[in-house]
């Protein structure tokens, strides 16, 4: 999670990685998940949070959190 805590997030959905100079575009829900991850929250917690705010079933939210983590891993961010 250390790596994530260094990322700079903007409300418009841009993420800057000061370590590599890469920038990223993130969807609205992606920003929400990233923020939660930076706070060190658990996947289950984050899925619950998505369900609370967005029109999505828990099962789908859980699945998408897992997928989002693999996207981060892919970019070397987690």
């Amino acid at each position: 999670m250390n790596r994530l805590s260094q990322l700079a997030l903007s409300d418009e959905g841009f993420v800057f990685d000061p370590q590599t100079g890469d920038s990223f575009q993130v969807s609205e829900t992606g920003i929400a998940v990233l923020r939660a991850l930076k706070e060190g929250r658990s996947d289950e917690d984050i899925a619950q949070q998505l369900v609370a705010h967005f029109d999505v079933a828990l099962e789908e939210a859980r699945r998408d959190c897992t997928d989002f983590r693999s996207q981060l891993k892919n970019f070397g961010l987690a």
Binding site: V15, S23, F24, S27, T29, D55, V56, D64, L72
Partner: peptide
């Protein structure tokens, strides 16, 4: 009322065509 959901996605920004299409 809850907000419409779209799946969380993160995309690396690159220069060039690919990205332009990704944005459009």
């Amino acid at each position: 009322s809850k907000r419409p959901y779209e799946k969380p996605v993160i995309n690396k920004l690159r220069s060039g065509l690919m990205n332009k299409f990704g944005w459009s």
